[in-house]
Nucleic acid binder design. Structure first.
Length: 181
DNA sequence: GGAACGATCTGC
DNA sequence: CAGATCGTTCCC
């Protein structure tokens, strides 16, 4: 299991996103296989970066391979992997992972044993990702990072419009690792 | 200064 | 299907 190379992420979010499927997200004892992602970039009205740099989205305009965490709905966090080049304002939202290790820790944080990380808010709660993890470099092999265990991305992921947005609703920038065959 | 609104989740 | 709950952003 080797850490992801930064060069792998230094490309357009909608190109990187499907290739992040089946990679591993690690945060302390918690490991999960990425199975659902969405792409955002600064040309996209649904993106936090659409209207330029702000205090919140500054990480998204920074270097690829860093973690962009934001707080929303007054109670949830969402985690993104910054892609592209400095100044681009691109990222891939991690929407769901399949838990692989640290299930006990995830269950304790979630307060249940089912549906541990099958949604962006649930994923962050299970993996303990909050604003203190915002800006973390995921490509240096640290406790929080992205890793590759050799499992390739699915050849035919499900591709759909993105979830939970009110603009840019027709852009098919959501990728799901379909289960089975 | 104030109001509106979320890249969501849960329980009814 | 509506309520929770608060930081960020935008408008006056």
């Amino acid at each position: 299991m080797r850490r992801l190379r930064r060069s792998f992420l230094t490309r357009d979010s909608h190109v990187v996103a499907p290739e992040l499927l089946n990679k591993l997200l690690v945060a302390g004892p918690c490991v999960g296989r990425i199975v659902e992602v969405e792409a955002y970039d600064s040309t996209d009205p649904a993106s936090h970066t659409f209207r330029g740099v702000t205090k919140r989205n500054a990480i998204m305009f920074g270097r690829a391979g860093h973690l962009y965490v934001y707080f929303t709905y007054g109670m949830h966090h969402c985690a993104n992997v910054v892609t592209g080049r400095v100044g681009d304002g691109q990222a891939v939202l991690l929407r769901a992972v399949t838990p692989m290790s640290g299930l006990d820790v995830m269950a304790a944080r979630r307060g249940r044993t089912l549906h541990l990380a099958d949604g962006p808010g649930k994923l962050c709660q299970a993996f303990g990702l909050d604003l203190s993890a915002n800006g973390t470099d995921l490509c240096v092999g640290g406790a929080i990072g992205l890793y590759d265990d050799g499992v390739p991305p699915p050849e035919l992921p499900l591709i759909t419009p993105r979830i939970g947005i009110s603009v840019g609703v027709d852009t098919p920038w959501r990728w799901v690792a379909s289960s089975g065959t």
